[in-house]
């Protein structure tokens, strides 16, 4: 074996060993490096009990309320399947909005309410001017509307069929 080939074999062997190590590290990462838990995961008791962790999801539309004391806010974090009520005392980030992503750190109390010590906004990767955003919103609303009328039409038709 020429020295160059020998070196190549050494490098190739090293890389292979590293790939295996990386795969193992990734595997460990995967089970430990969870930045936040979804409400569904919390409901399934996957989140650590009795200590602080993060929940992530969407702020349910219409759920944001300021408590009578003026500093505490209450909102519901949902992943559409399950939801968790959250209480938080402090300043909310600029991008915190109903219907948008949120990550809250805190503890789940026995009453099922999550007492947050920090609330972070999780935004999406879409960037567009406000006019485009409102156009997209309109289009989505129109689509939902048409789907609803479709459903209504169908049920009306069914109703008509059922009539003798």
């Amino acid at each position: 074996m020429k020295p160059r080939h020998k070196r190549f074999a050494l490098v190739a062997g090293g890389v292979a060993a590293l790939c295996i190590a990386a795969a193992l590290i990734l595997n460990a990462f995967n089970s430990n490096l969870v930045f936040f838990y979804s409400p569904t995961q919390v409901a399934a008791h996957e989140a650590p009990a009795g200590r602080s962790f993060r929940i992530g999801g969407m702020v349910e539309s219409g759920s944001l309320q300021r408590q009578p004391d003026g500093v505490t806010v209450r909102f519901v974090v949902t992943d559409t399947a399950k939801s968790i009520p959250v209480l938080y005392e402090g300043i909310l980030p600029d991008l915190f909005k109903e219907g948008k992503g949120v990550v809250a750190e805190g503890k789940l109390e026995g009453d099922g309410v999550f007492r947050a010590s920090q609330v972070l906004a999780k935004h999406d990767e879409n960037y567009m001017p406000p006019e485009a955003a409102s156009a997209v919103e309109k289009a989505q609303k129109a689509e939902q509307e048409s789907q609803r009328t479709l459903v209504l039409d169908k049920s009306a038709a069914r109703g008509a069929e059922n009539k003798p």
Binding site: G56, V103, E125, N126
Partner: peptide
Amino acid sequence: WNTLHQGSSVSITRAPSMASTM
């Protein structure tokens, strides 16, 4: 993983999710 950081706006598998001048 679940991250606070958002996904990529530009990827080779789909159209970019940004306004064209941006």
